[in-house]
């Protein structure tokens, strides 16, 4: 029996990965990029030790140097090693992206679940407030709120989390609205199972596939938002090595030393595109019914 189950799970995992990578080489490349950036973020201190420079180390007499054997990607406007800052920037971006999505998912899913399950006035109020949130462009919303958190990574991730939360509320609310009519939910209600148990045990697991897809997509969105806010000077504060900050600081040397601004820009682009494409592939693999719909 155990062997059959093992075979079954091996088979479904293989099917999952087959479908996940079915979009061709692009998904494989993007997946590889994400793994690479995660590894870079995790081993940032080690990498900096290897290259011999920290992200904050200034060398005023080596400002805006072109790539060389000493500084592989050159230096910025106060002589800091660009590669070291990019490596630590991966940490900041991924951490902000993932944290924001985690906050948004936890709160958004709970609110959407409760509103969808109980319906009535609660659902109407929650959904109208959500609609109002969605009507505000996320960049404006986060710009206003981020002035309160003053460049703090945790605070900024909360602000970004609030701005992407409506997507979870809407999605979970819609799913729960149809799932709660299923027989197993009706049966659970008839045997007077606790509402809380019904929501967490019967409804939430059935929303998981879509939630994981939304989560992945939202990480990319959150990274983009963080970078934009940092570029505008209201996100992560200098001298923290965030990619948006690096683009903002390097922008004035676009003519004379373009790499300083272009490299972090390329990193942002690669990570955001990779998250989006992997999100699409994940959706295909986890919920074939939604393929091409989200």
């Amino acid at each position: 029996m155990g062997e059959i189950r093992k075979k079954k799970s091996t088979g479904s995992a293989a099917r999952f990965f087959r479908v996940f990578f079915s979009r061709g080489i692009i998904t494989k490349i993007c997946f590889g990029i994400l793994i690479l950036f995660v590894l870079i973020a995790v081993f940032a201190p080690l990498i900096c030790k290897l290259i011999g420079f920290g992200p904050y180390e200034q060398d005023l007499f080596n400002m805006l140097k072109k790539p060389s054997s000493e500084h592989l990607l050159g230096t910025d406007d106060i002589g800091r090693d660009t590669l070291a800052r990019l490596v630590y920037g991966a940490r900041v971006s991924l951490l902000t992206g993932i944290l924001s999505s985690v906050w948004a998912a936890i709160v958004g899913i709970l609110i959407g679940l409760a509103a969808g399950y109980f319906g009535g006035l609660l659902n109407t109020v929650v959904m109208r407030i959500t609609d109002a949130f969605i009507a505000i462009p996320p960049i404006i919303f986060t710009m206003v709120l981020s002035s309160m958190v003053k460049g703090n990574l945790l605070g900024l991730s909360l602000v970004i989390g609030v701005s992407i939360m409506p997507s979870y509320i809407r999605m979970v609310n819609g799913l729960v609205g149809s799932l709660k009519e299923n027989d197993y939910v009706v049966a659970a209600k008839l045997v007077r199972e606790n509402d809380f148990i019904i929501m967490l045990k019967h409804l939430l697991p059935n929303c998981m596939a879509s939630m994981i897809v939304t989560f992945t997509m939202n990480v990319g969105t959150a990274i983009m938002l963080e970078s934009t806010l940092s570029y505008l000077g209201v996100g992560i504060a200098a001298p923290t090595p965030a990619w948006g900050v690096m683009v903002s600081e390097g922008y004035k040397y676009l003519v004379n030393q373009p790499l300083v601004a272009i490299l972090p820009g390329v990193c942002i682009m690669l990570v955001v595109i990779s998250f989006n494409i992997c999100g699409d592939s994940l959706r295909d693999a986890m919920d074939p019914r939604l393929r091409g719909k989200l």
Binding site: Y56, Q58, L60, D77, I78, A238, P239, E249, K252
Partner: peptide
């Protein structure tokens, strides 16, 4: 006050 040179100076002084 935000400014290119001021930003540079502030970061150097902080360091």
């Amino acid at each position: 006050q935000v400014g290119d040179f001021m930003g540079q100076l502030a970061q150097i002084c902080a360091s």
